[in-house]
């Protein structure tokens, strides 16, 4: 599904070039559940952003479902991304002015899905995550765990093949975190490919494969 070849990413500060990622080579198959681990500043989030097409590598090749992402234009990338990728953030990143229902609906709006169909899809996922009762609340009225649940629901609403999670449990207590991880496990069993960045060994162990990053390099996978 994903092939990364000789990916380099750097930033220039003054005359110094600081490498964030160095020579990343990675193959990920459909249906995998991968945990990326590593200390702060090791390039975990950068790698995730590149895979998620939010960021671009400075060098190297990236193939996603046989498309050469590094050669695609912004618009084509966006189409590809809309269709196949869902994103979950540590800080949930819900839109404060929208209700739970509207937040979950947002990705569908940008995929030109008809209103009736959107309604059905959102209703399904609300039902599945057991948050039907919360659908008219605003994010500020929810607990962290519930907000993250909404965040995941939003990421999954468009039925992506790949779910990217950047420290999804970082702001949650251990019980809430565990619930989220259990959910990921179930999702993975249903066929969604998951890549998560995490600090926690325990959460990482939910993954079928763990990738360790140090100073922008993959240690051993």
């Amino acid at each position: 599904m994903i092939q990364l070849r000789k990916i380099f990413k750097w930033v220039n500060t003054g005359s110094n070039r600081t490498f964030l990622l160095k020579d990343i080579n990675l193959d990920i198959k459909e249906g995998e559940f991968i945990s990326i681990m590593g200390p702060s500043g090791s390039g975990k989030s950068t790698l995730l952003n590149i895979i998620g097409m939010l960021d671009e590598a400075n060098e190297g090749e990236y193939n996603f479902l046989h498309e050469a992402v590094h050669k695609l234009k912004e618009r084509e990338k966006s189409t590809l991304y809309k269709q196949y990728i869902g994103f979950v953030f540590q800080a949930y990143h819900l839109i404060d002015e929208l209700t739970v229902y509207e937040n979950i609906e947002t990705p569908l709006i940008y995929q030109n899905i008809k209103s009736a169909e959107r309604k059905a899809m959102v209703a399904d996922i609300l039902d599945r995550f057991n948050i039907v009762g919360k659908k008219d609340l605003f994010p500020a009225q929810l607990s962290g765990g519930q907000q993250q649940l909404v965040g995941i629901a939003r990421a999954l609403i468009a039925k992506p093949k790949l779910l990217l999670a950047d420290e999804p449990t970082g702001n949650l207590n251990s019980k809430q975190g565990e619930e989220i991880m259990e959910l990921f496990k179930v999702l993975n069993e249903e066929g969604v490919t998951i890549i998560q960045v995490t600090h926690s060994e325990k959460n990482a162990s939910y993954g079928k494969r763990i990738i360790h990053l140090l100073d922008g390099r993959i240690q051993n996978s």
């Binding site: 991304y81 990143h93 819900l94 839109i95 947002t106 990705p107 940008y110 995929q111 939003r154 468009a158």
Partner: peptide, 16 residues
């Protein structure tokens, strides 16, 4: 800005 970021992550293009 955060809202814009989320919308873009959710698939919004610039013209949206």
């Amino acid at each position: 800005a955060k809202e814009v970021g989320i919308r873009k992550v959710s698939g919004a293009l610039r013209h949206h």
